[in-house]
Write a protein that binds this DNA or RNA. Structure first.
Length: 400
RNA sequence: GGUGAGUUACUCAAGUGGCCAACGAGGGCAGACUGUAAAUCUGCUGGCUUUCGCCUUCGGAAGUUCGAAUCUUCCACUCACCA
C-alpha cells in the first residue's frame, strides 16, 4: 500500500488532526526506513459498560498499527482517583481501587478483540505519577496558570455559574499531559472532548524538553441508533460490545441506511475503497442496501463474539423476520388453566400491564401461534402456545 | 438576608374550582406500507379478572369545599432580581 493510501486511511472519519505534518513524517519514515513510532491512548477506567461508541478510537488505532505504530495504552488508575472533569457539570465521584481494577480488566478484554497485542504496551499511570512527589507535582503545576485553565469551556461555565471546581480537577489535564512526557509519545489519540487534555500533552512535552511535540488525532463521537443523539447508555440508543449476538445483530439492522454508512466509516475494518464499492453498488441498484447492512452486522458480531455467532445471528434474523418464523430460543413460562389472555401476557413478561395488553389486542398486535387475537376476553385452555406481541416479543406458555 | 416567579406523566409543556387520567410536542409502543430500515399515514401511550365501571396520580403535609392539578396555610427544592 502506498504512503498516500495509508494517510488517507488514517484521516478517514477523524474529526480533527493537529500537526498532521508530523503524522505524515512518521508514516513516511516507517515506509522508507522501517522506523516505528508510538501512539498513546489514555483510558479512564471509571465505567465498565463499553459500547460501540468507545470502540471508534480502537478502530483508528488498529489502522495505525498497520502503518507502523506501537500503541501505548494507559490505564489511568491514578487519574481515575481524581475524576476527569470533561463534560461534567459537577465534581465527579471517586471510585474505589477495586472498581477501577475490575473496570480496567474488562476494558482490556474488549480492546484486544480489536488490537494486536504484540504491538500494544499497557501502562498504569500511577507508575510514574506516584513517584512524582510533592516537589515534582509543584514543578508540574508551574507549567500552567489558572487563567488558561479556565479557558476550558466546562471550567469556565462552572466558574461563571459558581459551581464548585476542585483543585484536583485542575490537576487532571496536567497529569494526563504528563503521561505524554513520561512515555515520549509521538501521537495522542482521543475523542473530540479530549482536545484540551491532549493539547496539554503537547505543551508539557515542550516544557519538559522531551524533544518532540505529539500530534493529536481526534475521533468523532458516534451517533446512537436513532441517528441523531450521541451513543450513550443513558439514552438507551447504544450497542454494547457485550450484547448477545442476536441482539447486537438486530440493533445494527435497525439503523437507517444513511447511518449505516457512518457506522461503516467509523467501525468497519473494510478499506475506504471497499466501502466506496458498496456505496456505488447500492446507488446503481446492483446491491441491495439490506445485504450491505447485513454484511456490517455480521462483521461487528464476529468481532465481538465469533464467526459462528455472526453466521447464526444472520440466520436467526432472517428466519424470524424475513420468513416470519418464530425464533428458537424463546423463554418458557407456566401458567394456570383458564387464564385471561391479558394476564398471561403480563406473566410472561412481554407486556407491562393488563391495560397495555388490552390496547395491543385492540390494535391487532397480539398473536397466539401466529393467529391474531381479536377477543380481549379470551381465556387460555390447557396446552402449549407461543404468544407474540408485535414483531419482536415472544414467549412460550404451558397452560395447565 | 429581602422580594418575585416556579415545581404537572419518560422529557418539554398547557391547564388557575366541576366538561381532568389531565391540551399539545418530542420520545416510545403498535398497525399499514417495506428490506423488522428510513420516510410517510393511522391508532395508542396511569393502573385494575373485565373498562360508557372502579382506584391512584399534577413537589410534600394539612385545610376550605358537595367537588381541588386549580383556593388557603406550613414545609422542601429550583430560578430571577435586589442586598
Amino acid at each position: 500500500m502506498s504512503i498516500n493510501k495509508a494517510l488517507t486511511e488514517i484521516k478517514r472519519a477523524t474529526a480533527e488532526i493537529i500537526d498532521f505534518e508530523r503524522v505524515e513524517k512518521l508514516v513516511t519514515a516507517y515506509y522508507n526506513e522501517g522506523k516505528e513510532y508510538t501512539i498513546k491512548l489514555g483510558l479512564d477506567p471509571t465505567s465498565a459498560d463499553v459500547h460501540l461508541g468507545h470502540t471508534v478510537v480502537l478502530q483508528k488505532l488498529a489502522t495505525f498499527q498497520k502503518f507502523g505504530a506501537n500503541i501505548q495504552l494507559i490505564i489511568g488508575d491514578f487519574t481515575a482517583t481524581i475524576g476527569d472533569p470533561t463534560g461534567k457539570s459537577e465534581t465527579r465521584k471517586i471510585l474505589s481501587k477495586e472498581q477501577i481494577e475490575q473496570n480496567a480488566k474488562t476494558y482490556q478484554e474488549q480492546i484486544f478483540k480489536v488490537l494486536d497485542p504484540a504491538k500494544t504496551e499497557v501502562f498504569y499511570n500511577s507508575q510514574w505519577l506516584d513517584e512524582l512527589g510533592t516537589r515534582g507535582l509543584t514543578a508540574l503545576t508551574m507549567n500552567y496558570n489558572v487563567a488558561r485553565m479556565l479557558e476550558r469551556d466546562d471550567f469556565e461555565n462552572r466558574y461563571k455559574s459558581q459551581t464548585p471546581i476542585s483543585i484536583s480537577e485542575f490537576l487532571y489535564p496536567l497529569f494526563q499531559g504528563y503521561d505524554s512526557v513520561a512515555l515520549k509519545s509521538d501521537i495522542e489519540i482521543g475523542g473530540t472532548d479530549q482536545k484540551f487534555n491532549m493539547h496539554m500533552g503537547r505543551h508539557l512535552q515542550r516544557a519538559y524538553g522531551v524533544g518532540k511535540e505529539q500530534a493529536i488525532v481526534m475521533v468523532p463521537i458516534i451517533e446512537g441508533l436513532d441517528g441523531v443523539q450521541k451513543m450513550s447508555k443513558s439514552l438507551k440508543n447504544y450497542i454494547g460490545v457485550t450484547d448477545a449476538p442476536n441482539e447486537m445483530f438486530a440493533k445494527i439492522m435497525s439503523i437507517s441506511d444513511e447511518l449505516m454508512w457512518r457506522y461503516y466509516e467509523l467501525l468497519s475494518s473494510k478499506s475506504l475503497e471497499d466501502i466506496e464499492k458498496l456505496k456505488s453498488g447500492v446507488s446503481n441498484g446492483t446491491l441491495h442496501p439490506k445485504m450491505v447492512k447485513e454484511e456490517l452486522a455480521v462483521e461487528i458480531v464476529t468481532r465481538y463474539h465469533s464467526e459462528d455467532d455472526g453466521k447464526s445471528a444472520l440466520e436467526a434474523f432472517n428466519k424470524q423476520f424475513k420468513q416470519n418464523q418464530i425464533p428458537d430460543d424463546i423463554a418458557e413460562y407456566k401458567v394456570e388453566e383458564g387464564i385471561w389472555i391479558c394476564k398471561a401476557l403480563v406473566e410472561c413478561g412481554i407486556e407491562p400491564s393488563t391495560s397495555q395488553s388490552r390496547r395491543d389486542i385492540k390494535q391487532g398486535a397480539v398473536r397466539i401461534d401466529q393467529e391474531k387475537v381479536s377477543d380481549e376476553q379470551l381465556k387460555l385452555e390447557s396446552g402449549e402456545y407461543v404468544l407474540q406481541v408485535g414483531k419482536r416479543k415472544f414467549a412460550k406458555v404451558k397452560v395447565g
